[in-house]
Write a protein that binds this DNA or RNA. Structure first.
Lengths: 206, 206
DNA sequence: CGTCGCATTGATATCGCTCAAATCCGGTGG
DNA sequence: CCACCGGATTTGAGCGATATCAATGCGACG
């Protein structure tokens, strides 16, 4: 997975490639921010140590995503970066990347657009995960992801979808059969469709 | 709550103020995007209608936030904007706002920084809401929000904090007393502190 | 003083998690 | 082509955590 094509051409000369093994760290809390990172392969997590010794995952980036965009605007890291799986990382010196991006309005706009689109996605996830029951989360996901055709084609396994929804796989399987039996949705393999004229189960009466 | 001071001065002349009552709509799905909005007061939600007639909240913006940043880059709205509470909205013509922001590198940078910071916050929320039990969500929140002093000062009521955590207020009250009794945290009113050297309850063994 | 909203505690129901077992499915090698 | 294997999917049973309903205390405010 390569960096987006809207990056200023001048950046290519400054790109640095790194590979890190699963569990290894790319940087640690309080390190000065030296580079801006793109995850070309694998999955990278930002992990914060808590006063009581526990660890909390702050965010993760998967292949094709920038990692910790906010670090581009901060002097020091406030968490560790650790590989969830073996990673291939492409990095640029932070200041070089920032200057290059904001010197070229088209690139600045594309970068902002990417941030805005990611932000919208995360907002939807938050709203979805706030819902307390499995059915509502499923219906919310379908509402967000349904193509104009009316169908949703799952890119991954049901297992991974369950993780995305904050559910255990068994819970998802059961909820899907229940919704199908109730006539709320139709399913064929990994294709799903909400059936119209059903009673709203996810509505907020207020 | 006023728009950020890093907005290009030229935008002030184009600002339009609107007030809408609770439940009223600012725009609707498939409307052409004409303006970019800032919530000066109140709370505004983006709501998507689902094929089955139910509604799903996609995102919300509160006083002091821009609303639906991604709309700045899209031709049409894909959801309705509805006031959760009475709102005062400041808006600029989309194209005017976009040109002004990206014509001035400092403003483009500030805008991107804001998006990146918001994105990081939402990522943390997602990770937190993915956790299955109340204690872990509370500890995760404290890990994210603890000031250098070691204390967290809650800005709002416990009720609102419960909503932020995706819990019912009663659950939060109970979990807090439990954690306090266990010596994991100290609490005084709305000031909270994690106590060190406690057994990790939120750790991911893996 | 009365009211209202927040905080707290109790009792109960419900839903999702967990452990377990069976089945399905795609890929592999004989 | 078929037997076999590992992972995903499905279904079952039971438990535990959270939501829900209810009652009370408490503090701010008019």
């Amino acid at each position: 997975m390569n960096p987006p094509d809207w990056l200023p051409a001048t950046l290519a000369a400054h790109a640095l490639e790194t590979r890190i093994a699963k569990g290894e760290s790319l940087f640690r809390t309080s390190d000065a921010v030296a580079r801006f990172h793109f995850v070309a392969a694998g999955e990278l997590a930002a992990i914060r140590a808590m006063p009581n010794g526990a660890e909390a995952v702050m965010l993760t980036a998967r292949a094709g995503e920038f990692f910790a965009e906010a670090s581009l605007f901060l002097p020091r890291y406030t968490c560790d970066a650790r590989a969830v799986s073996a990673c291939r990382i492409i990095a640029w010196p932070s200041e070089t990347f920032r200057s290059a991006i904001f010197a070229e309005p088209a690139a600045a706009l594309a970068f902002s657009r990417m941030l805005a689109v990611n932000l919208r996605r995360q907002c939807s996830r938050v709203e979805r995960l706030r819902m307390k029951n499995a059915d509502d989360r499923i219906l919310h996901y379908l509402a967000c992801e349904t193509a104009p055709s009316g169908w949703v084609e799952l890119a991954s396994s049901l297992q991974e979808w369950a993780a995305e929804l904050g559910l255990e796989p068994e819970t998802l399987y059961r909820a899907l059969s229940r919704l199908e039996a109730a006539g709320t949705l139709e399913r064929d393999r990994r294709r799903l469709r909400l059936v119209g004229s059903q009673v709203a189960s996810c509505a907020r009466p207020e």
